[in-house]
Design a protein around this nucleic acid. Sequence first.
DNA 1: GCTTAAGTGTACCGATCTGTTAACCTACTG
DNA 2: CAGTAGGTTAACAGATCGGTACACTTAAGC
Lengths: 193, 193
Amino acid sequence: MRPNKRDELVRKALTVFYRNGFHATGMDMLVAETGVSKTSMYKHFRTKEELILAVLRLRDENFRHWLYRRIEELSDTPDGQLLAMFDALSEWFEKPEFRGCMFIKASAEFQDVRHPIHAQSAAHKQILQDHFAKLAAEAGANQPLDLARQLLLLKEGAIVSAVMARGGGLAGDPAADAKEAARSLLSLHLPRP
Amino acid sequence: MRPNKRDELVRKALTVFYRNGFHATGMDMLVAETGVSKTSMYKHFRTKEELILAVLRLRDENFRHWLYRRIEELSDTPDGQLLAMFDALSEWFEKPEFRGCMFIKASAEFQDVRHPIHAQSAAHKQILQDHFAKLAAEAGANQPLDLARQLLLLKEGAIVSAVMARGGGLAGDPAADAKEAARSLLSLHLPRP
DNA sequence: GCTTAAGTGTACCGATCTGTTAACCTACTG
DNA sequence: CAGTAGGTTAACAGATCGGTACACTTAAGC
């Protein structure tokens, strides 16, 4: 059981789950898409749930590191980075493979709050919120935690709306709208420059 | 096939789907929970998808009418009603049966934008956005559509965050945070009173 | 050269999935 | 009273679900 083999399985399973959903994706389909045998799959992951949790761990890493890096590329001030988040999101929304937030979908399919999948999804959001709060504090916001929470609301709302808007079912440009709103909120929370 | 029998089935199916998810809820479970026979169920709804679409239609009616009425009870000015929406949401979030937005969950489980379930979910959001825009225009907002979209983002973000916060997995009071943000946005969009 | 770990293919398990079939019951209506 | 609409129970398709059993191959390490 080479560890990188396992990682490769998680990586491929991620794309399948992301495209297809969790319940709608059977282990047979995963086995077919990854090219691995079913026996091996179950040697690496004792249950489907364990595989999903591994997928979510990878997704958390990938997404957060991508977002953190991208906003640092786009701006070198903390308040600029908070704003730039919505430009990064915009880039994400326009990728053809964009299918919304994997953690929102996971918590939607595993609704019991005591379920590890639900808990892990919430943990991802908490980590993001903490990061926003750190940036807000560095930017000198009056109430950095409040600002962070409001920005998180805008981010989640933008993702959900972007999903709905994807097929033209909802009018508007969620990333642009969210950025505009964020600009307003930042101007009210930050001391006059 | 008395029509009210069908409505009763839709009503009961709604609670089961809302509690359990769509893919995770089998027709056998629905039959057991509604007390109806499987044959009758398939006489009323030719497929599971048709049942889900009927459930979503009912949910759209119920939710929108509840929300519209509640915010009218809480305020009699259009801008006051836009703010009161977040008080109404707060009441919803605190109900023990709260499990998030059914349309977000539906679009998460049926991701293909051409799928009728996905389209119907997006339509629900569009109708809400239109309603907000109407209120924003009545309130005299500079750009009522922009304000409506921003408020929709806050609403969706609050719902998603409330789901995550339900088991204590995410800190904060999403409804209160969203209301605070909405107050800021309104003050910037409305002409000085 | 032998052992062991890692992986393979395939067949299978019982349960559940959506959906169907057939025979029967019951109550209203012409 | 006969016909019919709406409902019942119960069994059954055919597929797929998560997960396992068994016999085999391949490659590395001692």
